[in-house]
């Protein structure tokens, strides 16, 4: 048992966005509870879930905000983007309209989060191959053009090959963690969506203190 095995060293905030009914809540539920909700009511508000994962041996607590997709709530849900380290942008591969709206979701995300926010595009309900309305190729192209990470996933087909739910959440975390390692993501920025919690006192502290005192001077 190394020091502080119970603790996590980081908290990452995620938001899940996308049109109503694309399966945002199901994806969250699948990720946190490993269960599929066959008839999930519309989210009227912002649901909250957490799970602790491990990336490169570091324990990370994901704090996930699942937003209401209904258009009428759009103005309100915009206040939840701020401070997100990861944004999972979901569409439904069986409903083209949800794909068509992606650019507007993307605009919101870009405007309301910071440049280091990792945006992951998820084409959900890929278990419904027969009803497919958006091809993998075009979505993949869209993702590439906009610098997004992308998978097709299914919140229903749990455990099967290609459910990709875990992947989406974990890959996002890996990318964020990488940004921290590279120094692209400034942990001290209030809106980075990441909090660092060194579990060993006295080790990581020094640099944090120095940073903090710099901050103090600035204001």
């Amino acid at each position: 048992m190394s020091a502080g095995p119970y603790n996590y060293s980081y908290i990452f905030k995620y938001i899940i966005i996308g049109d109503m009914g694309v399966g945002k809540s199901c994806l969250l539920h699948q990720f946190t509870e490993k269960k599929f909700m066959a008839d999930c009511p519309h989210t009227i508000g912002v649901e909250f879930g957490t799970r602790i994962i491990e990336v490169s041996g570091q324990k990370i607590k994901l704090q996930i905000w699942d937003t209401a997709g209904q258009e009428r709530f759009r103005a309100v849900t915009r206040s939840y983007y701020r401070g997100a380290a990861g944004a999972l942008m979901v569409y439904d591969i069986t409903r083209r309209s949800t794909y068509n709206h992606l650019s507007s979701w993307l605009t919101d995300t870009r405007n309301l989060t910071n440049p280091s926010t990792v945006i992951f595009l998820i084409g959900n309900k890929c278990d419904l191959e027969g009803q497919r309305d958006v091809t993998y190729e075009e979505a993949s192209k869209f993702a590439e053009e906009n610098g997004l990470m992308f998978v097709e996933a299914s919140a229903r087909q749990m455990g099967n090959r290609g459910d990709n739910v875990e992947e989406a959440f974990l890959e996002t975390a890996k990318k964020i963690y990488q940004s921290i390692q590279d120094g692209r993501l400034d942990l001290n920025a209030a809106e980075s969506g990441v909090q660092h919690k060194p579990s060993q006192p006295g080790r990581n502290n020094l640099s944090a203190d120095q940073q903090a005192s710099k901050d103090n001077c600035a204001c």
Binding site: I44, G45, V46, E47, F48, A68, R72, F73, A75, V76, Y80
Partner: peptide, 14 residues
């Protein structure tokens, strides 16, 4: 109006 009912440490409802 859409009111935001916030739970401390938890979700928000509209």
């Amino acid at each position: 109006d859409i009111l935001v009912l916030h739970l401390k440490g938890g979700k928000d409802m509209f």
